[in-house]
């Protein structure tokens, strides 16, 4: 079942979805398997055989009634901004081989790209595409840049990239076509961690520029843990 909270990407719609997901977390129903927030929707996965009193009632109706009663409560809940997560990034060099391309695209210096990218606070609208991959809202038009014409066959884990008006971080090494401007030593995804994804929909995010030296130090201490 797909719940639609609006037509356009907006902070208001996003906060409403987060508030509803939090409400659902506390008031779930036997047979609801999981739910996935996206830009304007919350998708509910359900097991029909476990809903509806052993077949006496239509599972969709039962689920619908439950969700509608939660939606009614939503009116009285003030939207809460998510937690702030800081992501250290070493920009440029071998970590961000496309930083100069983004700068040249706007005829500005690489330093200006870094300043603009790290000044902004971003919102994690959803996680998708790959485990732990955040779809971030809030990229400045001043550093938006089209994807690469030919995608790389392998983008290293931790790479921070730009594609159009989106910016994001690759949690695992995958093929990808985003312009890479830097890399974080932070692990965004680990299947032994709970939750496995560091970032969750609803989080606020800020990129913190660090030197290559600091990057190496953080990566070393990560491996020691």
């Amino acid at each position: 079942m797909v719940l639609q909270f609006g037509e356009q990407i907006s902070p208001e719609v996003h906060l409403k979805i987060q508030a509803f997901a939090a409400l659902l977390e506390k008031n779930t129903l036997a047979g609801i398997v999981e739910w996935v927030p996206a830009y304007t929707t919350l998708t509910i996965y359900y097991a029909p055989l476990l809903i509806g009193n052993g077949g006496s009632e239509d599972p969709y109706d039962v689920l619908y009634r439950h969700l509608a009663s939660l939606a009614a409560k939503l009116e009285n809940i003030a939207p809460m901004p998510g937690r702030l997560v800081e992501i250290p990034v070493c920009y440029g060099g071998s970590f961000g081989p496309d930083l100069d391309i983004v700068a040249a695209h706007h005829n500005i210096s690489p330093e200006e790209v870094i300043a603009i990218h790290s000044q902004q606070e971003y919102t994690v609208y959803m996680i998708g595409f790959a485990p732990g991959f955040p779809y971030l809202g809030g990229l400045s038009k001043k550093i938006a840049c089209p994807r690469k014409a030919a995608p790389r066959s392998s983008v290293p884990a931790g790479s921070v990239g730009i594609a159009g008006l989106q910016t994001g971080i690759y949690p695992i090494s995958t093929p990808g076509g985003w312009q890479l401007i830097g890399r974080t030593p932070i692990t965004l995804f680990g299947y032994c961690k709970q939750p496995p994804s560091l970032l969750q929909a609803g989080d606020r995010l800020r990129f913190m520029p660090v030197s290559a030296k600091d990057y190496e130090r953080m990566e070393r201490s990560r491996h020691e843990h």
Binding site: V33, E34, P171, P195, S197, Q200
Partner: peptide, 10 residues
């Protein structure tokens, strides 16, 4: 593997 789709886990 269920209940991890919101983490992007298939």
């Amino acid at each position: 593997r269920h209940q991890y789709k919101k983490d992007g886990i298939i």
